[in-house]
Design a protein around this nucleic acid. Sequence first.
DNA 1: CACCAATGTTAGATCACTCTAACATTTATC
DNA 2: GATAAATGTTAGAGTGATCTAACATTGGTG
Lengths: 223, 223
Amino acid sequence: MPVSELSSTAQDYLKLIWSATEWADKPITVGVMAERIGVKPSTVSDGIKRLAAQGLVTHAPYGSIELTEAGREHAVAMVRRHRLLETFLVEILGYGWDEVHDEAEVLEHAVSDLMVDRIDRLLKHPSRDPHGDPIPPAVGTPAATVGFQLDQAKPGSQVTVTRISDEDPDMLRYFTELGLAPESRLTVRERRPYADVTTVRIHGQDSDIALGTTAAAAIWVVA
Amino acid sequence: MPVSELSSTAQDYLKLIWSATEWADKPITVGVMAERIGVKPSTVSDGIKRLAAQGLVTHAPYGSIELTEAGREHAVAMVRRHRLLETFLVEILGYGWDEVHDEAEVLEHAVSDLMVDRIDRLLKHPSRDPHGDPIPPAVGTPAATVGFQLDQAKPGSQVTVTRISDEDPDMLRYFTELGLAPESRLTVRERRPYADVTTVRIHGQDSDIALGTTAAAAIWVVA
DNA sequence: CACCAATGTTAGATCACTCTAACATTTATC
DNA sequence: GATAAATGTTAGAGTGATCTAACATTGGTG
């Protein structure tokens, strides 16, 4: 999976497009991309055009954005880098899991394929990163996603956290405070439909925790 | 030492200008910079002008290139990053000392100050990188250079290698083959003035090694 | 179904970096 | 010290990324 000859903005775009389909299957929009990357929609529109010219995405004006096979390969390679780096930062350099995202975001464009391999070896080929996201293998297809979002869980059910979205460091710090992490066992207490609040009890703790939609949607669980 | 707001080309220029005065004291020229960085002289000329506009160097057209205090600080911070990264790659990721230069060259622009600190801590605050170059401290003045180049050494003298320039990986691989590294003890056998060859014997080996000027100038020694 | 709001695209600028080609200056040599 | 060679600078152009502002399209609502 060669990666080097792409600009780092191009790599960001591809990764973001791929990521949108990893957990949810709704296609990503120019507006959402712009917001995530922190640029104006016109910039993204422009960038997508360049990507299309390079055969990495297909996109007709006002149409949907789809990765080509080449685009998907690049994207998955970037996701692999990102997640290996996050794992590395936590395991080897002692980062907190709330600190790794931004660092990995920059590093993923700088490390060589050789370094990615060395990190993979040093970590003994990890299959999940510190947030529970699966690390795509160097060759072959990425692990299929499992589970569902906590805001979809039935009140009364018991679930295990498999993944927590790493997008928002503040939210991660909050989860850390609560003692909520991948592998945590939870009992879903109730959901107030109009308040959009999901209440859960972490096993081993003696009080309930109320989570808003954003927080509950960032947490993926299995029954 | 803030570094972030500078482009990575600007950082490269500053590091290169500083490096030129670390071992030799001859001022660097536009041509040499262009060659080292791998761009045309016109590009460097242009870049220097931008650096001057930012108050990082002083430079009048056709004149010499000098770092300002701000420029020097940035440069030293980059050198610190570079050398810590090289050490890290060798110590933690098992790189060969001939493989680290190019990787560090890219990474030095990507790692955060936090990561530099963590690496420094993990390595227990090393004072020299794998080639024997001193690692500038986070605060305070860099270690003064000691020693002289092997091509200046008197025939018959015994010397210890303190540093080997990391510029040329092929040369480093050659030195590795020879068993020549920082800390090696050598006896200088002879120098043929017009052949520009320095012959040395590595202690513990039973044959002499002939080194051309480029090689001998890349090796720094103390008596 | 017509219209408006939301969303996306294009146009026109700017900036950093790069090139080639032309021009200027410095230095080295005879 | 005049001239040629080496070195450095400027001019003009292209690319990618970004912006703002104007324009276009789509989709939902009355």
